[in-house]
Write a protein that binds this DNA or RNA. Structure first.
Lengths: 117, 117
DNA sequence: TTGACATATGCCGATATAGGTATATAATGC
DNA sequence: GCATTATATACCTATATCGGCATATGTCAA
């Protein structure tokens, strides 16, 4: 078998450095495709393909404006990544008893998710 | 050309769900390989290969104990991921001028998903 | 030493990818 | 209509996986 499809989730989508660059640009404001092409120095099809992946995981939204497609960041699609990595933050930011703290964090995170749904 | 090597950086390493599961287990404490095999229900070679990727990006450390290899989490390897995604946190948790448009578009989703922080 | 145990690695097949080029689709302007 | 602009997609090649199976490496125990 092969690797899971990159379009499957946000974790795969942001594994590609160019896609992170696109998101970083869009974080400053929406942009049509041609501006992204110019700013990143990639080919137009390449940009379009990366945007497609980002679209499919919900990380960007498109808006049609004349013959342009204006892409905008959809930040909340990245929340699962933040939620996951957040649990490891202690290990580099503070000196705690790592075992206990991480355990507690994972647990409360699960409870928070269960309650929120 | 092909996709970037999975060993290139932590972003690629954690794109694989099984590797995130391994890290989540190790967050509770170090484990020898055979326990990971048993707990995750994957084949031993599969676990070893995933551990190799995690080793190569520095996300885990190994310690030899008799004939066992005890793996432990090395959290700081995940810091780049946290640093990157942290900048997007505001898009679902707080209101910032630059992201007002995005926030407005996604307000309903934010309310649905991110209750109780 | 011999054998059992623990783990890593090599090879294979299948597939998903990234990037390139060419082309299709779609909207605008003349 | 026709040309131009803007973007998406189809096709192609090369490669990097992931998972399976077999095997190599290394460690302990009798």
């Amino acid at each position: 078998m092969a690797r899971a499809a990159t379009t499957a989730d946000a974790f795969n989508a942001i594994a590609e450095p160019r896609r992170r660059e696109i998101l970083d640009l869009l974080a400053h404001g929406e942009r049509p495709v041609n501006e992204l092409v110019e700013m990143l120095g990639l080919s137009q099809p390449q940009i379009s393909k990366h945007l497609r992946v980002l679209r499919e995981v919900g990380a960007v939204d498109v808006r049609v404006d004349g013959r342009q497609r204006v892409y905008a960041l959809n930040g909340p699609a990245l929340k699962p990544i933040h939620d996951w990595v957040k649990n490891y933050e202690r290990s580099w930011s503070e000196r705690f008893d790592e075992l206990d703290v991480v355990l507690k964090d994972l647990k409360s995170e699960e409870e928070a998710n269960d309650r929120g749904k």
